[in-house]
């Protein structure tokens, strides 16, 4: 026999709470749908315009004055070079900084100040990094308008994001795991390198690769340091001049001939494929490491 609720302090009002829950479910569903629909329309538009122009010839051809023979090769290689170098520079530095901040830095005003500055740097507009890169790498360090100068600039740009996301991944490793390692006589370095870091790898990878895929789309800072719109040769070393996919695409779109607009759409498709492969790699790596 159940006790009647009458006269008690509880007023369950289950029907009304159920209605509220339903309303919010629809709001969230609507927001998601809206985002997906906008994305789908954009994608469809690009695909309709550009898909027929994506071909092997388009991918391996150099830029040209004639739209029918123009290709994306230089921009694609420029992007891959810059990203590879940026990854090489920013991953070790960013992850090491995150480990130091989380596992070694004494908590106090110093680490709080550093922390705050990193958070601020993450929200600085990318053009500002371009100005810094121009002054620091192109002119002062005399690296010229090279891939290296571009990669260093992009490294500065995504470093704060990499540090912050790696810190979050490291922080999400339970404290009890560190204590277990210490209780077995592990040093701090053994604890960090053999327990904390491996456990944090999936999260670190997700964050760092997403940061890198942000760098793929960056145009402004690279224009500032002088990545050229027209580069007739494919880069073969870090000191070469270069252009990247977004700049190449922008260059085509700003031409008057409509055929160039179509190959710009084809360029966007290539850029999207590069981006999607990055995100796919992030997912695969994360699954690989979190299974172990």
């Amino acid at each position: 026999m159940s006790r009647p609720d009458t006269g008690s302090d509880f007023q369950p009002r289950a029907a009304q709470r159920g209605r509220t829950a339903k309303i919010f479910r629809w709001i969230f569903f609507g927001a998601t749908t809206l985002a997906i629909v906008v994305l789908a329309v954009l994608l469809l538009d690009v695909l309709r315009t550009g898909a027929t122009h994506v071909s092997w010839r388009f991918i391996v051809s150099y830029p040209s004055r004639f739209p029918e023979s123009a290709g994306i090769l230089v921009g694609l290689l420029g992007s891959l070079w810059t990203l590879g170098l940026t990854a090489l520079l920013s991953f070790p530095l960013g992850i090491a900084t995150a480990i130091w901040l989380e596992e070694y830095a004494p908590s106090g005003w110093l680490s709080r100040t550093i922390q705050m500055n990193i958070a601020n740097l993450a929200s600085v507009p990318s053009v500002v990094y371009g100005i810094l890169g121009l002054a620091l790498f192109v002119q002062w360090m005399n690296l010229g308008r090279s891939i290296l100068a571009g990669s260093l600039t992009l490294t500065l740009l995504i470093l704060p994001v990499i540090i912050i996301s790696s810190q979050e991944a490291i922080r999400s490793v339970p404290k009890s795991i560190r204590l277990a390692a210490f209780a077995l006589g592990a040093t701090r370095w053994q604890t960090v390198s053999r327990q904390v870091f491996p456990a944090a790898i999936p999260g670190i990878l997700t964050g760092t690769i997403l940061a890198l895929s942000r760098a793929v789309g960056e145009t402004a800072p690279l224009i500032l340091i002088g990545a050229a719109a027209y580069v007739p040769f494919a880069p073969v070393s870090p000191m070469d001049e270069f252009t990247v996919l977004p700049i190449q695409i922008f260059n085509w779109i700003s031409r008057p001939q409509p055929q160039f607009h179509q190959i710009a759409a084809a360029g966007i498709i290539v850029l999207l494929i590069v981006l999607l492969s990055f995100n796919l790699a992030a997912i695969l790596l994360r699954n690989h490491y979190s299974k172990r």
Binding site: S176, I177, A180, A183
Partner: peptide, 16 residues
């Protein structure tokens, strides 16, 4: 800690 081992109140195996 190598000489004086410990088992914690809550089980805390490594994720390995």
């Amino acid at each position: 800690r190598r000489r004086i081992g410990m088992v914690f109140q809550k089980p805390n195996p490594f994720p390995k």
